[in-house]
Design a protein around this nucleic acid. Sequence first.
DNA 1: GATGAATGAGCGTTCATTCAT
DNA 2: GATGAATGAACGCTCATTCAT
Lengths: 224, 224, 224, 224
Amino acid sequence: MPKTASPALTRWTRRKEARPAELLAAALDIFVEKGYAATRLDDVAARAGVSKGTLYLYYDSKESLFKAVIRGGLVPAIQRGEKVFEAHSGPMTELLEKIIFGWWEEVGTSQLGGIPKLMFAEAKNFPELADFYYTEVISRGYGLVRKVLEAGRDRGEFIAIDPEYGTRLVLAPLVFLLLWRHSFSMCERQPIDPEKYLGIHMRLAIDGLRARPAAGASALPEAR
Amino acid sequence: MPKTASPALTRWTRRKEARPAELLAAALDIFVEKGYAATRLDDVAARAGVSKGTLYLYYDSKESLFKAVIRGGLVPAIQRGEKVFEAHSGPMTELLEKIIFGWWEEVGTSQLGGIPKLMFAEAKNFPELADFYYTEVISRGYGLVRKVLEAGRDRGEFIAIDPEYGTRLVLAPLVFLLLWRHSFSMCERQPIDPEKYLGIHMRLAIDGLRARPAAGASALPEAR
Amino acid sequence: MPKTASPALTRWTRRKEARPAELLAAALDIFVEKGYAATRLDDVAARAGVSKGTLYLYYDSKESLFKAVIRGGLVPAIQRGEKVFEAHSGPMTELLEKIIFGWWEEVGTSQLGGIPKLMFAEAKNFPELADFYYTEVISRGYGLVRKVLEAGRDRGEFIAIDPEYGTRLVLAPLVFLLLWRHSFSMCERQPIDPEKYLGIHMRLAIDGLRARPAAGASALPEAR
Amino acid sequence: MPKTASPALTRWTRRKEARPAELLAAALDIFVEKGYAATRLDDVAARAGVSKGTLYLYYDSKESLFKAVIRGGLVPAIQRGEKVFEAHSGPMTELLEKIIFGWWEEVGTSQLGGIPKLMFAEAKNFPELADFYYTEVISRGYGLVRKVLEAGRDRGEFIAIDPEYGTRLVLAPLVFLLLWRHSFSMCERQPIDPEKYLGIHMRLAIDGLRARPAAGASALPEAR
DNA sequence: GATGAATGAGCGTTCATTCAT
DNA sequence: GATGAATGAACGCTCATTCAT
């Protein structure tokens, strides 16, 4: 005998295990589509196919739902990046490319790529959310890239640039790409090609950071 | 024909003509402080010293008020940049620095610097607004930088990089700085120093773009 | 016929029979702690160590649960008071004190003391509940005290005061004490001492009610 | 030409001066009818003939609306009682009766008489409200009566009873009457007659408090 | 032209009640 | 019998917009 006739027809269906993931997926969709403040919990519930009250069975508030989306989506991606760092041996230039492109593939091309725009947009109005995101995502992502730059400098691969600023300048175009694709991308006739964009950025950045064997006339004079 | 007839009438007329500008200044303040959605028209009216109803005498809706803010604030700044381009003679590296630092001083350090964050945040929810901003601000700003890069390439100063992507990569850190300062800047202990940040960016970018007399092993091989 | 067949069945049966009492005890705790409207059935269930659904196995609704609490708590206390009346012989002044102090000890100092406040609060919103409480608790409690006063008057101990009003005036301070301790008592620096309060009340009341051998100038002139 | 055709027909009617009083009257009605927690602001608005939003034009929250009801209704009544105290000369027995009966006529027979029940009911769940009420109403009302008792004792009219407890015992029947009439009064066949009830209370209380020229056998032995 | 009182749709959150398991 | 996931109707509060004055 099959399990039941049709789950879609019953109003009460027990889905305890699957629910949180479904709810989070629906929430991610709507948060990315509308932004944090403009997201209505009704819409999230409707997207997940449940009632608004059900949301509160799993998450205490809009804010905790949002945090769960971050915790379940972006934080693991960061952690995987940290694993990649630890497992890596070889030139830091390679590791840098691996991390940047990996992040793009994992985050940039998925729905998660819409989160940073949302966070930039709402950080001022929801300081607690901003703190959470800064601690859990930004500082860890930045720390990861900074460690790569510092290791490269220590290994003699990179020039001695201030790692704080170098990190920002390495990440800025990546962040910009993320924001762009969730804002004005539909306004351009010629849409940006992320692979090409990131490729050029990486080549310019790595070349700019690379320690030159014999500093020629055009080398950066004391970039610190 | 003289501008106005009597002084008494003049003062009244001048007041009436000054109203929109006062309203716009107040709106800019609040929009930048709170964001678009969180801005209450009551607050704008209070800041301008008028009643809420008066706002509707001049602007149809919150959205049209917001558009007017952009039209009156960012577009003239772009136009001044275009003037600088036309008046310039000499190396394009100099012009690029002049434009980037000029934009930072004029826009980045003023209230207007908060607009881009707003636009990125609301572009998806207000497509018409996004189109308007893309046409009036983004494409003109980008075009300006692109023309600098193209002129530099034509003059043999810069390497032959795809100008569309080069432009984005030159501007991305600037945009990032703008957004950062209106979002997460209060989360960091060590606040970013814009002059230093832009200085390093310019040196890296100009060095990366600069055509090298004799391309050594580490030079960019055909970055196109 | 013996009560139950086997010990195993007994234990199970006993558990099932104990359930309502456990639920009622939990409900009394929460109702008294939070009030009727602010009581959440989740809390009652949690306190009783059962699920919320189980509550509905035994009681149709929040209101019927509340009624059951009253039936099981206050009504037996009234009945014990009636037994005391019947068993008493001797002066009515003694009986009155016995009943008042007994009620205080049994009801006032226990959880049950919170019920009258609830009933006063909800009587208007739940008329059916009010009728039930009036019939089962109030009219019987009043009747008891009234009979004491009437007996005292018939025995020549008390003056001929209208027993309806005398009863109310004897009970009012008791009710007031009950309500006070479940409402504003935490606002006062010097908390009320129930023994002292009731002691003074009793002495004043009994003295006021006591038939004076020779009615002096200050005696109550026919208080009817 | 008359002012306007019909105010009832226009949706926007400017009522600024009259509004607060109308709102307060409507709020008092509903609060007394339903209690604090069970009062819906929609109902208050509907009773006042305005929209719910209009309520928030005048009062920040449900709580502040309620406080305004107290401040505008009960506090002035207390103040008038304090004036009566100051203006009085003559026996304290007279003053006590004047105050008790005055309070009854002014508060007990109006809608305001429903407030105390509501406060007893909600004090535990809204401690801030309880503090406010205790400070503004209870402690002042109690203080007033206590001063009468103390003055009477100092003048030799009253026996030396603990004024804190004497005050409570004088007021308890009054409070009880107020609560009763807003809770169970509709359950009784023979409704209580307030004048008679208070009359008997006053005679018993004043007689109980009165210092006896020559303490007979039945006088209170050291009621302290 | 200017005002500001009034509106009403909408949102986050709560909780008594239901019912598939 | 017992469970607890799911529901949905409320409720307090907000705010862009309207319009009588």
